[in-house]
Nucleic acid binder design. Structure first.
Length: 891
DNA sequence: GTCTTTTACCCAC
DNA sequence: ATCAGACGCATTCGG
DNA sequence: CCGAATGCGTCTGATGTGGGTAAAAGAC
């Protein structure tokens, strides 16, 4: 065994901005089974008896338990029940609980419009009555059987997965409440589930929003206290990222729970997971096949599920895994019906996959509060009818105004804990921005730059405006808050709290305040640096810093903060000031501390300065920056006046001054076409006349063309590698029908082997995936192009791919950097004896039809690229050392 | 029991 | 970080 | 003049690399 395979993932943000975690560990135990190591009598008897209608997937032996075993099992279960009751601080007696809950069940699950609610209800009640007098064990058995019977009936007659009820828009909210909020007054998890099902079943964004609005309205009017947990659950986040509340739960806990609760064995689990690529779907299938269960499910409410998550997040220390496991299993058991199981599991892995996350939720919130308010609130709401009366334009305008308010609040104060209570109190109004806006020590969501292929595209996007170019250092983005007391808080790009990671910066930051500066929020890039020489270090070096319990004395990787923006100063928001002004304040009121704090290197230019910009870009890459950021400096003086002037000139700034595009209804028929004929540039279409004006303001949480990210590897002229696909894995989620990711290798001419260099999942079209899956098809007897097991000539120890390809084609791939790898062996021995090389940000470009595998890139070539990359002198970025013959950028 | 190794999570890009 | 797909909207095109 | 086609912006989801860290599992 050599290098342990590492796994992780990250995604850009979802609602919480918390990237989605990898589920590779879903199969942690799989390997054991495959190797025959499985501790065969470990999982065994699930806590409930299961039967599978499907042959193959289930385990017959479990259904064949003897009565004795069953009794023992049940006793065990019974004991567990007590334990759990204690653990839950529940003082209800179990049987009482079950009684009340049972009523809840039929209420929740039965829809008025469905056929046999009454019948079900009575049958449930009858069973409960039967339970009344019995010995504990017997009573338990009976109750279990009753639950089983009920579940059986339910899944036979009222499956969640078939024709879930619509949120009928003609129904009043109070009708919906009756349907969805149980007698106890708490919104049920079934309500959420139903909403997820509806949302998941549509591709229409409009319908998704409508469904969410109905959900939110129901909760707002029926059970406002559940609104916050509901929003948390629906957006996969139990807290804002900067509050340390992690589930610490991944695929492995889920797969264990599924095995135990649903009686799946490794094979069944693996089969299902390979097929669906989503643990929730596995749970769904497993539950669907289960004809009955012994354990009485305890109906889930939004709050109870949320409380369970909190409990999971809060359990730490030795034995915590087991505690978490128990809660997870309990939740999975308590899920009634297949759909609820699916979404409970997806909730647990914090990956709902319903096509609605942050933005959609914010939109839905803004609309829900237009129509609904909690009973104790007094803000005005409108009726559906009054909205229907509105002209289309006015409605759009009303919607978009409210959306903008809510989005703006969340961008400045991304914390549902604060936003939701205020919304419940005052609804969506201008005051919301005051009550829930930018504050010190609360991060705002960063403004982002849109990626830009090359300088030509850059100039086009800039529409002729004056701009500033800045080095894009390869480090970590940091948002630094400092109050007048000198207390400092540092946030990462994804708003994680980084204060503890950078005690050196915390000590430094109060000292960068110049005359008259007390409190501020600024943004910059933290880069590893040699404090003596000022040489910039690589990103990999920075990543080596410890993260927790860092004390200043023990810091081994020194850093420098390169500031580039200022959003808040002495109690005043600067977001609406143009960039030139913010930058001026940043540069004049703060003091440089060489090699500790400074500003990003910059060059101001106009579209006439293409050459200087190119030089600047080159100088940036020469000191190992990723490229440059380009930012619009000024707002348009008076956008309205410009309107008529420049539609003739594509390069010119554009008219629409109003951020709300909706206002355009009036006369904006404008001179759409005009003289576009004169344009010879392909990328300046006639449509440019309706482009939005570039903003020089700081627009939190937006990715606009007023900030452009130009990186060296975006360009087609960057180095690429011609790699050979050698293996693949079953994809997850929407890619579950294909191989993804795919393992790529370089050729080693000396040894004749293929050395794995990276996995790749980006850059493939769905069409390509489909063709690829058909080409490498292990089930195709005649022409499968796959191998049984790893061929000896492939070097890869990082895991067990689901399929090995017969090497036969060459793919051209792009990447940002070459990294020294702990897992991959490509070019090992050529640059390092212990480590091979791999790629940062690999992506597929195209098939090299013209190349055979014997023409694929060689390990030696890769090593050569690595040396070239390392050869770029890390130079001081100011006070250039004199030896620079190579380039000369700014003065 | 204590120390070391491995795993599975978290986070940066 | 990366990229592709899907939707919605506005404008343009085809008949 | 209206429906279909097209272009653009926005949102969503699937998963790449390296490395740190807490807790579990293994070694003695």
């Amino acid at each position: 065994m050599s290098s342990p395979a590492k796994r992780r993932k990250k995604n850009d943000y979802n609602a919480s901005n918390r990237p989605v975690r990898s589920l590779d560990s879903f199969f942690a135990k799989q390997k054991d089974a495959a190797n025959g190591v499985s501790k065969s009598n470990e999982p065994k008897i699930p806590q409930k008896i299961t039967q599978f209608q499907d042959k193959g997937s289930g385990k017959a032996h479990e259904a064949a338990m003897t009565d004795e075993e069953l009794a023992r099992k049940l006793q065990e279960e019974w004991n567990n029940e007590d334990l759990d009751a204690d653990a839950n601080n529940s003082n209800e007696a179990s049987d009482t609980r079950e009684t009340t809950r049972a009523n809840g069940i039929s209420e929740d699950i039965v829809e008025p419009s469905l056929d046999k609610p009454e019948l079900l209800k009575t049958s449930a009640n009858k069973n409960l009555n039967d339970n009344q007098e019995s010995t504990p064990l017997k009573k338990h058995v009976l109750s279990l059987q009753s639950a089983a019977a009920e579940e059986d009936t339910v899944s036979a007659n009222l499956p969640f997965d078939q024709s879930p009820l619509e949120f009928d828009p003609t129904k009043s909210i109070s009708d919906l409440q009756k349907q969805w909020v149980s007698d106890g007054g708490n919104a049920t998890y079934a309500l959420l589930t139903r909403c997820f099902v509806l949302v998941n079943g549509t591709q229409s964004r409009i319908k998704i929003v409508d469904t969410l609005v109905n959900l939110l309205r129901t909760i707002i009017e029926g059970d406002p206290e559940s609104l916050l947990p509901a929003v948390w659950l629906a957006t996969n986040s139990i807290s804002p990222p900067y509050i340390d509340l992690e589930l610490g739960l991944g695929g492995s806990a889920i797969s264990k729970a599924l095995k135990k609760v649903c009686g799946l064995d490794n094979t069944g689990l693996k089969t299902l997971y390979n097929k669906y690529g989503d643990p929730g779907d596995v749970a769904f299938e497993a539950k669907k096949r289960q004809s009955f269960t012994l354990r009485k499910p305890k109906p889930l409410t939004i709050k109870s599920v949320f409380d369970s998550l909190i409990k999971i997040a809060n359990s730490k220390g030795q034995g915590s895994q087991e505690v978490k496991q128990r809660i997870v299993e309990r939740l999975v058991q308590d899920a009634r019906g297949a759909e609820e199981s699916r979404y409970i599991v997806r909730t647990l892995v914090q990956h709902l996959r319903i096509g609605a996350v942050k933005t959609t939720m914010l939109i839905a919130l803004s609309r829900a509060f237009l129509l609904s308010r909690p009973s104790n609130a007094t803000f005005p709401v409108q009726s559906r009818e009054s909205l229907r009366m509105l002209r289309k334009e006015s409605l759009t305008e009303l919607y978009s105004k409210n959306e903008e308010i809510v989005k703006a609040c969340f961008a400045r104060h991304p914390n549902y804990n604060d936003l939701i209570p205020i919304l419940l109190e005052i609804g969506v109004c201008d005051e919301l921005l005051l009550r829930c806006g930018l504050s010190l020590h609360i991060p705002l969501r960063p403004m982002l730059g849109s990626i830009t292929r090359d300088l030509g595209e850059m100039l086009t996007k800039l529409q002729g405006r004056d701009f500033s170019c800045e080095y894009k250092y390869d480090g970590q983005r940091a948002q630094v808050h400092c109050d007048d007391q000198g207390q400092v808080t540092i946030f990462s790009r994804h708003l994680e709290l980084m204060t503890d990671k950078y005690p050196d910066l915390v000590a430094l930051v109060p000292n960068i305040r110049g005359e008259g500066v007390s409190s501020f929020i600024l943004e910059g890039e933290v880069v590893a640096i040699d404090h003596e020489s000022g040489d910039l270090k690589t990103f990999q070096t920075l990543a080596n810093r410890a993260r927790k319990d860092v004390v200043i004395g023990s810091v081994k990787v020194n850093v420098c903060l390169f500031a580039f923006d200022l959003m808040y100063l002495n109690g005043e928001e600067l977001l609406n000031r143009p960039f030139r002004e913010r930058r001026e304040l940043l540069r004049s009121l703060f003091v440089e501390i060489p090699n500790h704090f400074t500003w990003v290197k910059n060059l101001d230019a106009t579209s006439a300065d293409a050459e200087a910009v190119l030089e600047f870009f080159k100088s940036a890459t020469a000191i190992k920056c990723e490229g440059i950021m380009v930012k619009v400096l000024d707002d348009l003086p008076n956008p309205d006046l410009q309107a008529d002037v420049d539609s003739a000139d594509n390069e010119q700034a554009q008219p629409p001054p109003t951020p709300q595009k909706t206002v355009k209804g009036a006369k904006s028929k404008r001179k759409t076409k005009s003289i576009t004929g004169n344009t010879n540039e392909k990328d300046a279409p006639a449509t440019s006349s309706r482009r939005k004006a570039l903003l020089a303001t700081y627009e939190p949480d937006k990715r606009l063309d007023s900030w452009l990210k130009v990186k060296k590897d975006y360009n087609t002229s960057a180095d690429t590698l011609d790699l050979i696909p050698v293996a693949g894995w079953h994809g997850q989620g929407r890619k579950s029908k294909w191989w993804s990711p795919i393992l790529l290798a370089v050729r080693n001419a000396e040894t004749g082997t293929l050395e794995a260099v990276t996995k790749c999942m980006s850059g493939f079209t769905d069409k390509f995936y489909a063709a690829n899956r058909a080409k490498y098809d292990p089930d195709n007897e005649e022409e499968s192009n796959t191998l049984h097991g790893k061929p000896g000539y492939v070097e890869y120890e990082g895991g067990n791919p689901d399929v090995w390809f017969e090497p036969q084609e060459v793919w051209e791939c792009a990447f940002a950097d070459i990294t020294l790898s702990p897992t991959y062996t490509a070019a090992i021995g050529l640059v390092s004896d212990e480590r091979g090389l791999s790629l940062r940000f690999p992506r597929f470009l195209r098939v090299r039809e013209d190349k055979g595998i014997e023409e694929a890139s060689e390990a030696r070539f890769l090593a050569g690229l690595w040396r070239k990359q390392e050869a770029r002198e890390p130079r001081r970025e100011k006070k250039v050392e004199e030896e620079d013959a190579e380039q000369e950028e700014e003065y």
